[in-house]
């Protein structure tokens, strides 16, 4: 196996799980997410020589993946209507067991506006620092920190409301 192949393999090993989850939350479709990750690693393989510093690998892969995702929108704008998201909460049981709670949290995350969701994904899924997120999203760090704050704040409020309406319904 060549040196290049070894580098590629270790990149796949270290990052494919996180990248898939990031892609999943970016496009909210498991099939597209898988395609995105495959395309990202294919492009990474082709230009692996351009990656000088392994420490920059995560940002580099994320940049490729985000570009691929943007390309997808250039090709065709899939509109995954919020029908599913809007109806699910009301039809489910009001008992918020763990599984149910996770589903509710997931739903609220998917409802976040992309500009709030993406920095949060980078932070929680990818473990990026504020500086790294600013770099990847090409924003200044203050903007990034503000969006992270708002993302959590919105989620917290939304989940509190869900909890309260659930409690209200069970009364």
């Amino acid at each position: 196996m060549t040196q290049k192949q070894k580098r590629y393999e270790s990149l796949v090993q270290v990052y494919h799980t996180e990248l898939y989850r990031f892609a999943y939350w970016l496009c909210q479709d498991p099939t597209i997410a898988e395609d995105l990750v495959q395309e990202t690693f294919l492009r990474a393989w082709r230009s692996l020589d351009a990656l000088q510093d392994e420490k920059a690998a995560k940002s580099w892969l994320l940049t490729i993946l985000r570009r691929e995702n943007a390309r997808r929108f250039e090709r065709k704008q899939f509109d995954y209507a919020d029908v599913e998201n809007d109806t699910l909460v009301d039809t489910k049981s009001t008992a918020l067991d763990d599984e149910m709670e996770q589903t509710v949290v997931q739903r609220q995350i998917s409802r976040l506006a992309p500009e709030y969701r993406e920095p949060l994904l980078l932070q929680v899924v990818m473990g990026c620092s504020g500086d790294e997120i600013a770099d990847i999203l090409e924003l200044n760090k203050n903007t990034v920190m503000t969006r992270l704050y708002r993302a959590r704040n919105q989620l917290k409020e939304a989940l509190t409301n869900v909890n309260e309406s659930a409690k209200g319904a069970s009364n």
């Binding site: 090993q13 939350w25 294919l42 949290v105």
Partner: peptide, 27 residues
């Protein structure tokens, strides 16, 4: 921690194998 759990969606089992295979056929 709650967010992290919610975001940790299952990853396809064969994804890693696919990624390595893609590289091989590409090379």
């Amino acid at each position: 921690a709650l967010l992290g759990n919610a975001l940790n969606v299952p990853v396809p089992d064969d994804l890693q194998a696919k990624l390595l295979k893609n590289m091989e056929s590409e090379s």
